[in-house]
């Protein structure tokens, strides 16, 4: 409990208790905890003197907020127009089937969270998959699964798929 009070206290102080900075505050909270735990949200609402429902409305309106813990890794698949034309729906299908996870969800073993986003703005590299901040270009259903399967042995994922894009 005290951790919740302390953390939200720091965040609120950082933004000078400005209610208008609610979104950055929640972003900081999520960066710290990995998601928005209900206890912390209650604390934050109390400190800012706004109803919890307002925080909930913000948390559910914006796609980057999550109310449940995420997996150890972040897998973001771009569904922008170009990626879509170049086959990202097939990649999404392949990942969902292989690891039994839906877009927006987390695998049962918490290995990774899968997100399908509108556009990461790297259209020249389409189809694009971003894993823990690292961009993979020219991804195929097969290579996407291979990239994810390589998770337990981190070192091996360091090899970029640059060659594929060069073809």
């Amino acid at each position: 409990m005290s951790e919740e009070i302390e953390l939200t206290g720091q965040i609120v102080k950082h933004y000078g208790s400005d209610k208008g900075m609610l979104i950055p505050m929640m972003q900081d909270l999520q960066a710290e905890c990995g998601y928005l735990p209900i206890g912390h949200l209650r604390c934050l609402a109390e400190r800012l003197d706004v109803p919890l429902s307002r925080l909930y409305s913000v948390a559910t309106f914006y796609s980057s907020f999550r109310l449940a813990p995420k997996g150890a890794h972040d897998v973001t698949l771009c569904m922008g127009t170009v990626c879509y034309l170049k086959g990202s729906p097939m990649i999404l299908e392949a990942i969902s089937r292989e690891f039994n996870v839906e877009a927006g969800g987390t695998t049962a073993d918490r290995l990774f969270s899968l997100q399908a986003v509108n556009c990461v703005g790297a259209c020249a590299l389409a189809p694009v998959m971003v894993v823990d901040g690292k961009y993979y270009d020219g991804v195929t259903p097969q290579s996407a699964i291979e990239i994810i399967q390589a998770f337990p042995c981190e070192e091996e994922t360091a090899e970029p798929s640059a060659k594929e894009g060069a073809k």
Binding site: K19, G20, M21, L22, I23, Q27, R54, S57, V58, F61, Y62, S63, S64, F65, V117, N118
Partner: peptide
Amino acid sequence: GGGAFVCGESTALMASLEGRA
């Protein structure tokens, strides 16, 4: 931004800057 396409619209963007949906 929080990841909402509609926030590219001016009044929605301003609502977002005010800490609302």
